[in-house]
Computed example of a mutant assay.
Amino acid sequence: MTNTQATKIAVLGTGGGGRAHAAKLAGLGYEVHVGTRDPQATLARTEPDMMGNPPYQQWLADHPGITLNTFAEAAAAADEIVINGIDGANSVQALTAIADAMAGKVLIDYAVPYLYGAEMEHPWPTPWGTMPKLDPCDTDSLGEQIQRALPAVKVVKSFVTQEQETVVNPKTVGGGEHTMFVAGEDTDAKKAATELLTAYGWSDVLDLGGIVTARGLEMHAGMHSAIGLALGLGTPFGVKVVR
């Protein structure tokens, strides 16, 4: 499925998740504008990032047609949809700074509000170190915080329950027979997010309701990690809601 009208879409963040979305969207025919805090600094890096991804300059050269801008420039260029791949700890501050550029647009947020290095009475050891703490959790969510901070933006929490490489290629797991979720206050915004998921290849998208349900989506991060550890690191998997 391709987008013959070459709709402009923004992806904020240059990590592995942001790269997965940018590459998939470009392949679908979208005009992709990637946002980063400092484009020159991003392009100047010559070493892999903390997750082992190759330098962005090298990745960008392998994906012609994708434009690298500041967060604000990328968001302003988008026709309707901005995808948030900024790390959870910095999302609210970074997005608030570019609120004007996103006013009236749909922000699909998949950030997890992880707090790394937090003191915990009962830490959860993993092969990559202690599992980070979710903050906020239970009584609030990052999705809600973003919506409160950007009232003129239509926030949809989605993508967050899955590795982003699988979000953009769902049929690589079980032929695509698993479930993705959307949450938010604006029905049309959730429809736009669902249409994008359909373009990615999803056939089962469950609307959970208002943005308050982002709490459950973000808290799923722990369950996702537990399943991943049980199956073996790097094993792709999906979750299906059977009804």
Results as ranks from 00 to 15, higher is better:
residue 147 Q to D: 08
residue 120 M to Q: 15
residue 34 V to C: 01
residue 20 A to T: 03
residue 19 R to A: 09
residue 65 G to V: 06
residue 209 G to A: 13
residue 213 T to D: 08
residue 31 E to F: 04
residue 125 P to A: 06
residue 188 D to H: 13
residue 54 P to Q: 14
residue 233 L to N: 04
residue 144 E to P: 00
residue 98 I to C: 04
residue 45 R to G: 05
residue 192 A to T: 10
residue 123 P to F: 13
residue 86 I to F: 05
residue 11 V to Y: 00
residue 211 I to A: 03
residue 84 N to I: 01
residue 27 G to T: 09
residue 243 R to K: 13
residue 29 G to T: 11
residue 55 P to M: 11
residue 202 W to N: 09
residue 102 M to A: 07
residue 14 T to K: 00
residue 167 V to Q: 01
residue 171 K to N: 14
residue 63 H to G: 03
residue 113 P to V: 07
residue 32 V to A: 02
residue 152 A to R: 14
residue 229 L to Q: 13
residue 102 M to R: 05
residue 41 A to G: 07
residue 158 S to V: 07
residue 33 H to G: 00
residue 150 L to A: 07
residue 194 T to E: 12
residue 3 N to R: 13
residue 23 A to R: 06
residue 44 A to W: 07
residue 227 I to C: 07
residue 127 P to F: 10
residue 191 K to S: 14
residue 236 P to S: 10
residue 181 F to N: 01
residue 142 L to K: 03
residue 115 L to Q: 11
residue 178 H to P: 04
residue 150 L to R: 03
residue 147 Q to S: 15
residue 96 T to M: 10
residue 154 K to A: 06
residue 226 A to L: 14
residue 164 Q to T: 12
residue 30 Y to R: 02
residue 15 G to Q: 04
residue 183 A to M: 08
residue 97 A to S: 15
residue 14 T to S: 00
residue 3 N to C: 13
residue 162 Q to H: 15
residue 92 V to N: 05
residue 15 G to D: 06
residue 139 T to P: 02
residue 161 T to F: 04
residue 31 E to Y: 01
residue 134 L to K: 03
residue 91 S to L: 02
